[in-house]
């Protein structure tokens, strides 16, 4: 395991950012996660890969505290997401960008980002830089979300994520629907978040792009983690263009 993936929290504790032991999560009566053991250390950029229906999205939702394990244990950022209180506490520190973008169609881009920033108690001063960084400042910021393309919606969701400044980024197919610039933006933001000390889990089928920023690869098959690979020099050899002024 790389040194980066073993890094401890700023408070000095060595507990992983995500620690799952025999975690089972049910969707109805179907075990979407069927006994997962997984450690994701602070400051890791972990790529979850696996076929459709393998349980990647459920794993991210479990880490986000949106669902709890029906058996086993799940500790995320030091909180037990098996308890309702633990789930509530962990949600404040995570940012999830899923298949849905969680945006209001009838509000403009700027109004959406302002609302979600305020909802997560982020400083209102974070909104303009987030719009700038995601390329939404100017003409697009006053456009209703219903009029945006899929890629522009994802950029808006990324702007919301930037305002939240989460400790744990959970990205579900973050490159989907994005053009080359958008994909470079995602990777740039992931690297910036890592530099700022965040932990990132990416579920992606877009392996070329996702692998270039990942420090670990985690295979998920049939609701189980079957293999983990450390990518020692992924970030160094990555093709990401980091452009803070973009």
């Amino acid at each position: 395991m790389s040194e980066a993936s073993k890094s401890a929290r700023p408070d000095g504790s060595n507990r992983p950012a995500v620690q799952l032991r025999s975690a089972v999560a049910l969707l109805g009566s179907f075990p979407a996660l069927a006994g997962v053991d997984l450690d994701v250390h602070h400051n890791d950029v972990a790529l979850l890969q696996g076929p459709n229906g393998a349980g990647k999205t459920t794993l991210l939702r479990l880490c986000a505290g949106l669902i709890g394990p029906s058996s086993g244990t799940a500790m995320v950022l030091g909180q037990d997401v098996g308890s309702a209180n633990g789930r509530r506490r962990v949600r404040r520190s995570v940012g999830l960008m899923g298949h849905s973008t969680a945006l209001y169609d009838d509000l403009t881009v700027e109004q959406n980002v302002q609302f979600w920033a305020a909802a997560s108690k982020a400083e209102s001063e974070t909104v303009v830089p987030a719009l700038d960084r995601t390329g939404l400042a100017g003409r697009l910021q006053t456009v209703k979300v219903s009029a945006l393309s899929a890629g522009q919606r994802r950029r808006t969701a990324l702007a919301v994520l930037l305002c939240r400044r989460p400790s744990l980024w959970l990205l579900d197919e973050p490159h989907a629907g994005l053009d080359k610039d958008g994909r470079e933006l995602v990777n740039g933001l992931v690297l910036e978040a890592k530099d700022a000390g965040a932990t990132i889990l990416i579920a992606s089928h877009d392996l070329d792009w996702a692998t270039s920023v990942a420090t670990r690869r985690i295979d998920v098959v049939g609701g189980r983690v079957v293999e983990g690979t450390v990518v020692e020099d992924a970030v160094v050899k990555g093709t990401v263009v980091k452009d803070a002024d973009a």
Binding site: S100, Y104, K121
Partner: peptide, 11 residues
């Protein structure tokens, strides 16, 4: 569009 999840995550 998953806004309920957003509200839950918003704190």
């Amino acid at each position: 569009d998953g806004n309920l999840d957003g509200l839950r995550l918003g704190g």
